[in-house]
């Protein structure tokens, strides 16, 4: 193009446009340097936001699961403590109870029944433990205590025994066993909680099924054993020293048999704790992996961004210099 003149406006227009362009890229580069994140992540993914959104959704979801694993781990830990408490309450009693009538006499019986009666209170209150206002062993009825107090249970047992007309040790034992198994007995009078909890999801794949309640057979048998001993002190079982002795011993035997069941229960709970811990660890690992992946999608290389910013800056400076030079370069200034 043979030009013999070049319009003034063409110059200024071009300079203006280039300044605007450069300023925009300088702004973009400086934002990337400061935040470390891509200025336009969508452009970097060629408009495909699905991976980023999926990662963000998973990260937020893992945050939710972290609450679940924390809750559940605390709950299982507290339950384990309760089981240990029960273990302590019953352990020492069993040998003494079994020795009744053999090496021990009535004096010991009286002492033991009182002790067991207190122990029953302790076990029941342990099973009624509330953790953050949530009754641990009451299943879904988490706002209720899991068990009625010892008096209520023993009174109900008294009534059940006298209703059945049981007098021998075998009959009394049978009546007590029936009461504990009867839906209208223990399950409605003694156990105040609800069904076991629904499965707790620890991650999309892991769940903990049916957490323990006070209605579990192993815990029920503990209560039954202690109740048998305690009954030796009450009207229904107090018909004679022989019967009292026998009842207390039967209670001791029940507790002895129940010991292994409770151990199995504690072991199950321990397994659940391990699963919760493993799920929490897996979730944490997944979170780290996802964060890495997200960084891969969003983070800019700080060196590259800084270099770009530097380059844009020097380009802008050059442009300013050129603008100043060109504006001084006109014929009028030389026509003097």
């Amino acid at each position: 193009m043979a030009l013999i003149s070049l319009g003034d406006m063409a110059h200024s227009f071009m300079l203006r446009r280039q300044t605007a362009d450069l300023k925009q890229s300088a702004q973009q580069a400086s934002a990337e340097v400061v935040s470390g994140l891509s200025f336009d992540p969508a452009a970097r993914q060629h408009g495909d936001l699905v991976p980023i959104a999926a990662i963000e959704t998973s990260l937020t979801r893992l945050e939710g699961y972290r609450a679940v694993t924390n809750d559940t781990a605390t709950m299982a830990g507290a339950m384990q403590t309760v089981l240990q408490t029960i273990e302590h309450q019953t352990d020492d009693l069993v040998p003494a109870l079994l020795n009744l009538g053999l090496t021990e006499g009535l004096g010991t019986l009286n002492r033991l029944t009182t002790e067991v009666r207190q122990g029953l209170d302790g076990v029941i209150s342990a099973l009624n433990t509330r953790l953050g206002d949530r009754s641990l062993f009451a299943g879904i009825a988490a706002d209720q205590p899991a068990l009625a107090n010892a008096d209520t249970i023993l009174t109900a047992l008294d009534a059940a025994i006298s209703a059945s007309g049981a007098v021998t040790i075998g009959e009394i034992d049978a009546a007590v066993t029936t009461w504990f198994a009867d839906p209208a007995g223990f399950s409605s009078v003694g156990y105040l909680g609800g069904e076991p909890l629904s499965p707790l999801y620890l991650s999309p794949e892991d769940q903990v099924q049916g957490m323990l309640t006070a209605a579990h057979p192993a815990l029920r048998d503990t209560l039954k054993g202690m109740a048998l001993v305690a009954l030796a002190d009450r009207a229904a079982g107090a018909s004679g020293a022989g019967i009292r002795m026998a009842l207390a011993r039967r209670g001791g035997e029940t507790l002895l048999q129940n010991r292994s069941d409770r151990a199995a229960l504690a072991a199950d709970l321990g397994m659940a704790e391990a699963r919760i811990e493993a799920a929490a660890t897996r979730n944490q690992a997944e979170k780290s992996a996802l964060e890495l992946a997200r960084n891969g999608l969003l983070v800019v290389d700080p060196f590259e961004a800084a270099t770009r910013m530097e380059a844009t800056q020097s380009q802008l400076e050059a442009l300013y210099a050129v603008t100043a030079r060109l504006s001084r370069l006109n014929l009028v200034d030389f026509l003097r």
Binding site: E56, T57, T60, E63, G64, S198, L200
Partner: peptide, 18 residues
């Protein structure tokens, strides 16, 4: 929008736990 949906997702999980 996706963030709000993820928040609902996490809130459901947390609520189901307690």
């Amino acid at each position: 929008l996706t963030g709000r949906i993820a928040t609902l997702d996490a809130a459901l999980i947390a609520a189901a736990s307690r």
